[in-house]
Computed example of a mutant assay.
Amino acid sequence: MGKKTKVALAIAAASAAAWAGSKAISKPQKRESKEALQFERPIIIAQHGGAALAPAHSRLAFEQASKHNVDGFAVSVRLTKDEEIIAFHDATVDHITNGAGAVKDLTLEELQQLNIGYYFETIDGTRPYEEETVSVVTLRELFEAYPDKLFIVSIQDSPDTYEGSLMPSKLWRLIEELDIQYQILVTSPYSEQIDRFNLYAQNRIALGAGEGDIKKAMTAFTSQFGHLYHPKVDLFVLPLKSGVFNYDSPRFVKFLEDLNIPTIYSNIDDLMAMNRLLRQGAMGIITNRPDIAALIEETN
């Protein structure tokens, strides 16, 4: 037996021993179920209120989606200059309205004077809201208007900005004031924002995975050390694919399910894809087309 072969076998033996040792001392820890995520059937969540049917995050969009009996809404939030939480995804209003500027530099009153439906096109290509004002809506207004819906609230302001530093505490105070912990899930592209929010919530609110959390879970799943993964969130909102990772894997869904973490897939606007993902074990889908989602097979 050559020297290289002996070294390779020694490394393999050491790796196997490390795996066996870690398996013996580390047991997967399931997350406790959160009240907000207790559903007996697949759920349909309208993305930004149903952004293909009406201007994203407008009152019109939420009203349209409600007509299709969605179970809830995925809402991005940002903080205005006067520290109001509004439903809005982008950092600036430039490409959505006929106004200009950053959300953080405009007051709620200034933002409400802008038409966020100016560039909106319907499915048939028309632009019906150019000549009227479709205003931004506050998160408080949405919470009060839809007390029977699940809200997946995504903090968009970066943690290293002034407005981002304020958002976790302000969001928690709003939820606490309205006493709606049972219908809220908080997430963010920034895992740090989720951690900051949970300093106030203390695990009383369902938490969604940030981008870093999702990649960490997938890395653990594809390695031999999935048993070392200990989740700190309650729901994974997943794209079908991101970079080199394909997330629409029934085995990945099962991996998370075994940890008591359901999955929801985002931006799914095709009926066949909706049905396929639900059959594979997803808890639900987030869609810009709640009208299409209303046709999902009853057998799911």
Rank of each mutant, 00 (worst) to 15 (best):
S158Q: 13
K6A: 14
S33Q: 14
E40W: 02
E63I: 08
I86N: 02
Q183R: 15
L108A: 04
T107H: 10
G21H: 06
G99D: 10
N115K: 06
L171Y: 08
F236S: 02
K216A: 15
F151A: 02
D160I: 11
M283N: 03
L9K: 12
D195W: 07
N246Y: 11
I214Y: 00
V233Q: 10
S249D: 12
V70Y: 01
S66I: 05
A13D: 06
S22L: 15
L9D: 07
A217M: 05
N300V: 08
T299N: 12
N203P: 03
S249W: 00
L174Q: 08
N115V: 09
P159E: 06
D82H: 07
F151C: 01
F255C: 02
H230N: 15
Q202R: 15
K34T: 03
E84M: 10
T222H: 08
R127S: 15
I86D: 04
F143V: 12
P147S: 14
P159L: 05
S266Y: 10
F120R: 01
Q112A: 09
I123C: 04
F236Y: 13
F39Y: 14
D270K: 06
R251W: 03
I286Q: 00
E63V: 13
S33M: 14
S223I: 07
A54C: 07
Y162L: 03
F62L: 06
I152C: 09
A273S: 14
P42K: 02
D71Y: 00
M167W: 07
T107L: 10
F143C: 10
G49H: 02
L139H: 02
